[in-house]
């Protein structure tokens, strides 16, 4: 564990807490893409298949349970909770996210570390996470005004993978033959997808103005 990865995990955890706070405090999930939440639940369910087989550390197992349970709980809330489900922008959240799932499956079958059940699912989860934010970014552009908590949620969700890139650079130079090119490439694409969001987020923060994404 290094400081970059810890910072990344804490930022990721914080983004989940901000999202839960937003839904709980405003009793609304307007501006949140259910499709991105479903993709993230799928990412965690397919990446943490080793939760019960490989024990890395208490921290690792606890964080896996937290990410799986929070993402499933948010999807349940947005789909079935009588109060919040009505506030979901169903007609704005129209990204065809099953295409992202299909492309990730094909990529995982083509590019993986080893052709085993675990590794193909792991590669699938890495590719899917790289594009999982797309429905959310499209929804933000469509819904115009972005409330603070939603903006912070997306910001921290994007920042966590940037910390992971620093972690991979650190591990590359400190651990011999550490190579995770699947994570590196996907992580770079994932962070790059946030580039314009980060730009508008910075501008809104600098001008102390409401976050506005151009349509």
């Amino acid at each position: 564990m290094n400081i970059f990865r810890l910072a990344g995990d804490m930022t990721h955890l914080f983004s989940v807490l901000v999202l839960l706070l937003k839904i709980y405090a405003t009793k609304s999930c307007s501006g949140i893409s259910l499709k991105t939440q479903e993709l993230y639940a799928l990412v965690f369910l397919t990446r943490y298949l080793d939760l019960f087989t490989d024990f890395i550390s208490v921290y690792n197992s606890v964080m896996k349970v937290v990410f799986i349970s929070s993402s499933v709980a948010i999807v349940w809330c947005m789909r079935y909770h009588p109060l919040t489900r009505r506030t979901y922008d169903k007609d704005l959240d129209t990204f065809r996210h099953y295409i992202l799932v299909g492309v990730s499956i094909i990529l995982a079958l083509l590019f993986h570390d080893r052709f085993t059940f675990r590794e193909v699912f792991w590669a699938f989860s890495i590719y899917l996470e790289a594009v999982a934010i797309l429905p959310q970014l499209v929804l933000l552009q469509r819904s115009g005004n972005v409330d603070n908590l939603t903006g912070q949620y997306v910001f921290f969700l994007g920042a966590y993978r940037a910390f992971y890139i620093l972690n991979w650079i650190y591990r590359y130079f400190t651990e011999n033959h550490y190579s995770r090119w699947i994570s590196w490439l996907a992580g770079f694409v994932q962070t790059a997808l946030y580039a314009d969001f980060f730009y508008y987020y910075f501008v809104s923060w600098k001008n102390n103005a409401k976050l506005q994404l151009p349509a």
Binding site: R47, I56, N60, M63, K64, F67, R114, W122, Y164, H177
Partner: peptide, 10 residues
């Protein structure tokens, strides 16, 4: 070799 390394990252 690197491929047998378990995925120790989240």
């Amino acid at each position: 070799d690197t491929e047998t390394v378990p995925h120790d990252e989240l």
